[in-house]
Amino acid sequence: MSKIRIATTSLAGCFGCHMSFLDMDERLVVLLEHVEFNRSPFTDIKHCGPCDIGLIEGGVSNVENVHVLREFRDNCKILIAVGACAINGGVPAMRNHFNLRECLEEAYVNGVGVENPQIPNDVELPLLLDKVHPIHDVVRVDYYLPGCPPSADAFLKILGDLLAGKEPSLPHNLLHYD
């Protein structure tokens, strides 16, 4: 049987979800008998090829996030929003209380200890959206795995269900938003 191909990425997230994934520890070895990783911080593959499952950590904060997210949606049969940030914007979405100019001025102009104050505008930098959005605002999402971060057990439960061809579901003890 060929292995299930999984891709993962972090958009506007903290990599906490990826760290938590790795908390599977030795169970990763078992998992890897059934799955292989395509584009992911775990592999350093830069672009997503055709995959069975895409795991997205983080919300959509800038242009680059949009492009990466669309690449995943185009290539993954099943897309899963992983973690608070992907699901509702999470901590990065706390900037939605302010308009973009206020945020940037606080960070690069008026903030404490800022030297050479100016708002960066290099064309290499991805432009910021006016609000941080959950990923389901930008592409269709198939499943949600809440948590900040979701525990390794929660990852295993969802992936296990999918591997078994079942509709994924979380038992009460694995469902939390923090």
Partner: peptide, 27 residues
């Protein structure tokens, strides 16, 4: 604006617990 991970009520919040009870995965 419910950003549970940054909320002091997290874990003691009835709205959140209700959401768990009802199996809510996203907004």
């Amino acid at each position: 604006n419910h950003i549970c991970p940054s909320c002091e009520k997290c874990g003691d919040c009835t709205l959140q617990a209700m959401a768990y009870h009802l199996g809510m995965l996203d907004g």
